[in-house]
Each structure stands twice: as structure tokens, then as C-alpha cells.
């Protein structure tokens, strides 16, 4: 069984205790809501998108430390970024969270078969049972988000970590 220190890293708890970009934005910012029907976690994304850039973002909702810290870190990571950059980052994050093969996961789909095999081996050694393409690949653009990497060892919690990202993607789709 993986230890809780892999999950509850200090930086995650810091974002949970002191969430960044918490609040609401009035229209014309768009508002999307995400729910995890399993556990009741809720995420609200307010994204103000101008000229294909997220010029401002605020987060609402309530949930566990993983869903809320992921939302907080995401808001920091995407603020000011172009939608293309956000889509790419979302793909990388979801690849880190072991959701391969989706449109939004270029890092996973670009992985070589050998890399995937290596990741599989690493994953099974870590008792996570996932088939991440890029799980062990260091990625500097992830920044604080890399702290969430340990979540893949707790497969039930992956949904918590990606909830805010899926909700943001919906906001981007709405805007474009």
C-alpha cells in the first residue's frame, strides 16, 4: 500500500488550506460547474477569456483536499495563458494522471511503445495498476502540479484531481 506521504504533500495541503484565485467573476466571464457524482465534490470555474487567452480565472465549489488543491494549482498555472497552452497543459496533466489516449493527452499519445511499457512496469511496481504513458517523465512546465503525481497511486482519487481540469475544458469550449 502506498504511503499517505505520496498523496498529501505539503504543497497540496498548502493549496487546500489557502486556495489561490478563490472567488467569482461576473459576466462576460463564463461559468462552468463540475461534479463528481461518486463523492459529491463540486468545482465551479469562472474564466474570463479574451482573444484566446485566459485573462482572469476564479474557482469556487467544495470538496476534498485533492480536488480543491488541484483546482487552486490549475488556476495559477493557466492564468494569462493562451487557450492552446492551456489545452496542452491539460493534456500533460491528464497524462500524468494516467488517462491515456484521449484527444487532450498528447503527451500520452506521443509516447513510444517502450516508454509506455516502462511506465506500465513502474506503475505495477507502484501497485497503482495504471497504464500511464508519461507517469514517470519529468515535466518542468508542471511546476507545483507535479506534487499531484502521487495521486495515481490512489486510483480512486484520480477523479478528484482531474475534476477542475475537465470543468475548465468545458469553459474553454463554451468560450470558443
Amino acid at each position: 500500500m502506498p504511503g499517505l506521504e505520496d498523496l498529501y504533500k505539503e504543497i497540496i495541503l498548502d493549496h487546500y488550506r489557502n486556495p489561490r484565485n478563490r472567488g467569482e467573476l461576473p459576466p462576460p466571464a463564463c461559468k462552468t460547474e463540475g461534479f463528481n457524482p461518486l463523492c459529491g465534490d463540486e468545482i465551479v470555474v469562472y474564466a474570463h477569456i479574451v482573444d484566446d487567452h485566459i485573462v482572469d480565472i476564479k474557482m469556487g465549489g467544495q470538496g476534498c483536499s485533492i480536488s480543491q488543491s488541484s483546482a487552486s494549482m490549475m488556476s495559477q498555472a493557466v492564468k494569462g495563458k493562451s487557450l492552446d497552452e492551456v489545452r496542452k497543459l491539460t493534456g500533460e496533466f491528464k497524462a500524468m494522471m494516467s488517462i491515456p489516449g484521449k484527444d487532450d493527452a498528447p503527451a500520452a499519445s506521443e509516447s513510444s511503445a517502450a516508454e509506455i511499457e516502462a511506465a506500465k512496469a513502474a506503475a505495477s511496481a507502484g501497485d497503482a495498476g495504471n497504464i500511464a504513458g508519461a507517469a514517470e517523465k519529468p515535466d518542468l512546465s508542471m511546476g507545483d502540479l507535479s506534487a499531484l503525481k502521487g495521486v495515481v497511486k490512489f486510483p480512486v482519487r484520480i477523479k478528484c484531481a482531474v475534476l477542475s481540469w475537465n470543468t475548465l475544458l468545458e469553459a474553454i469550449e463554451q468560450a470558443s
Binding site: 498529501y8 459529491g40 485533492i66
Partner: peptide, 28 residues
Amino acid sequence: VHPHDLSQVLDQANVCVRAGHHCAKPLM
């Protein structure tokens, strides 16, 4: 402590509890 986090911590001691809305969202 959020219930989902709590159940994760309890799992370390093999204590199995349910965290969530228990299929009773109006009650929540």
C-alpha cells in the same frame, strides 16, 4: 477534515468507511 480525505487516512489502518453523499443528495 473532508470525508474523502478522512476515509483515505482510515484506509491506512484498514478501517473501511464510506465517504460521500450516500445517494442522498437532497438530505446533504
